[in-house]
């Protein structure tokens, strides 16, 4: 199953990298993300980018955005472009097709986040030549590596559920954007809306925890969510149902 999933992932990555017609044209489009996240933001943040682990959080958007776009294209796009039925008529299992699409979306989003983070590091060093060479702290590398991966997985698995219900790529992408905004907006609105005592209690509890505990806890929650969403997507991704969509 793994080799089949990698075959699907390889094809999906190739299709995504050629979606503007040629590889060069597609990379030119991605250059915008590199300029924003790898050059402009690091120039604004300065050396704090490597000194404060929280300063790298903007990079976390990259895998979320790219993975959501790619899963929309990979699932709703296959249906919209009439390639899904042929794929389903092949020897590939439902599981390997879905896994391949999730792997491709995660790999695509995560690898561009890494590229942005490396370009950001280069930018900060070039902008601050007087200082010793600046490098990310181990915590920052861990946050980027682990949370970038799990976050992209969450978006890809959740996105596959959304894309399975969307008739077109555009509809899938719009629904996913709304869902992503909701994920960030709801806590931002909900926390201030809590009663003052309860809010203080939550904040005190969080501040009382050490970073490692918070990190491990968050990672565990993300792993559980990733697995749950992938399982839910698996239940929906069945050729006998997809063929009727």
């Amino acid at each position: 199953m793994i080799s089949d999933a990698l075959t699907v992932a390889r094809k999906d990555l190739r299709e995504t990298l050629l979606q503007s017609g040629t590889l060069r044209r597609s990379l030119r489009g991605l250059l915008f993300s590199v300029v924003v996240f790898g050059v402009v933001l690091p120039l604004q943040i300065g050396p704090d980018l490597v000194r404060q682990p929280a300063a790298i959080l903007p990079f976390a958007w990259v895998p979320l955005l790219l993975a959501s776009n790619m899963i929309a294209d990979g699932i709703a796009g296959e249906r919209e472009r009439h390639t899904l039925e042929t794929l389903l008529a092949s020897r590939l299992s439902d599981r390997s097709i879905l896994l391949g699409k999730v792997v491709a979306a995660v790999a695509y989003g995560w690898s561009f986040m890494v590229v942005n983070a490396l370009v950001g590091l280069l930018t900060v060093n070039l902008a601050n030549p007087a200082q010793a060479i600046l490098v990310y702290s181990p915590q920052a590398i861990l946050i980027l590596g682990v949370f970038g991966l799990l976050g992209a997985g969450l978006v890809a698995c959740g996105g596959s559920l959304v894309a399975l219900r969307a008739p077109t790529v555009r509809q899938a992408a719009q629904n996913m954007s709304l869902a992503l905004v909701g994920v960030f907006l709801v806590p931002a609105l909900a926390i201030p809306a809590l009663p003052a005592d309860l809010r203080r209690q939550v904040i005190d509890t969080l501040l009382g925890l050490d970073w490692l505990t918070i990190g491990v806890g968050l990672a565990a929650i993300l792993v559980v969510l990733d697995v749950a969403l992938f399982s839910a997507a698996m239940l929906r991704f069945q050729r006998t149902r997809l063929i009727l969509d």
Partner: peptide, 9 residues
């Protein structure tokens, strides 16, 4: 029913 080809490839 459809050729099922990946037209970007």
């Amino acid at each position: 029913e459809h050729p099922g080809l990946y037209e970007r490839l």
